Computed example of a mutant assay.
Amino acid sequence: MKLTIFSKSLTIGVVLIALVCMIQGCKIQMTFNGASIPENIQTASVQLFDNRAAYINPVLAQTFTEGLKDRIINGSRLTLAEETGDVDFSGAITGYETEPLAIQADARASETRLTVRVNVRYENFKDPEKSWESSFSAYRDFPSDQNITAIEGELVDEIVEELTENIFNKAFADW
């Protein structure tokens, strides 16, 4: 009899602990997906990122800049300022290159990597100690027998999405 009561109490305790963990997990997830932006910051601005890479993709600067704006609009409560906002993003695309990977016996690459590098300056005018400058990079691999011009747009979109997510997280998710 005592064992049955203990067993039921243990089961209820385990269920409660699991429930608390799930609730805490949801809370952490919501905080992670949302942004921890102080209440005094209302606006953000994104300057056009100059393309200073040795090889220039003619649409990359605009694609990247608009991607970062979209990430801020869709991932936070901030509004974009026409001029300079409470926080400001600026910088340059410093690298855009392909390199062969997985060299085969016939000295041909079976895969190629497209890499984009960006230098970002984040200025927080409400709390200047939180300002930073950092480099970010992202890449995508593709089969070397594919024509880069046929898949370049899709690869660039994926890379820009990853880069803007990482920049957003560094600025607003405290990691």
Rank of each mutant, 00 (worst) to 15 (best):
N33Q: 05
D70K: 13
V87Y: 01
L114A: 07
K130H: 04
Q47P: 08
T65K: 06
Q104Y: 07
G153P: 00
N147S: 09
R121C: 00
L78Q: 05
V156W: 04
A150M: 02
T149Y: 05
N147Q: 07
Y139D: 08
G95P: 01
N33L: 08
I56Y: 06
G85I: 08
G91S: 03
R140T: 08
F32W: 08
I73F: 09
F125D: 01
S135M: 04
T84G: 07
A61P: 07
V156T: 13
E152W: 00
E83N: 15
D141E: 09
D86I: 04
F125N: 01
A102H: 08
T149E: 06
Y96D: 04
E97H: 14
N124L: 00
I37L: 01
L114M: 05
E152P: 00
D157Y: 04
S137D: 08
N51Y: 10
E39K: 08
Y96V: 08
T94Y: 11
D141F: 11
G153F: 03
P100N: 14
A107Y: 14
N124E: 02
E97A: 15
L101W: 07
G95E: 09
S90C: 02
E66L: 02
P58T: 15
Q146I: 13
D127L: 04
R108Q: 09
T98E: 06
D141C: 06
N119E: 12
K69T: 10
I148A: 09
I103D: 01
G153N: 10
I41Y: 03
V116Q: 06
E123Q: 14
S131I: 06
A102L: 11
T94S: 15
D88A: 06
E97V: 14
Y139F: 13
T94R: 12
Q146S: 15
A150K: 05
R113W: 03
E82S: 05
D157C: 02
A105Q: 02
D106R: 06
D50G: 15
E39D: 15
P58W: 13
D86F: 11
A105I: 04
E152I: 13
S76E: 07
G67Q: 07
D70P: 01
R108H: 14
A105T: 07
N51E: 05
S76G: 12
S137Y: 02
D50P: 07
A54M: 13
V120F: 11
Q146M: 15
A105P: 01
I72D: 01
L60V: 09
I72H: 00
E97L: 10
Q104V: 01
A61F: 12
R108C: 03
T98D: 01
E158M: 09
Q42Y: 12
K130N: 11
D86H: 03
R140E: 01
V156N: 04
S110I: 07
S36I: 12
T112A: 08
A150R: 03
Q62E: 05
S131D: 03
A109F: 03
E152N: 14
A150H: 06
D50I: 12
L114V: 10
T79E: 05
V46L: 03
Y139E: 02
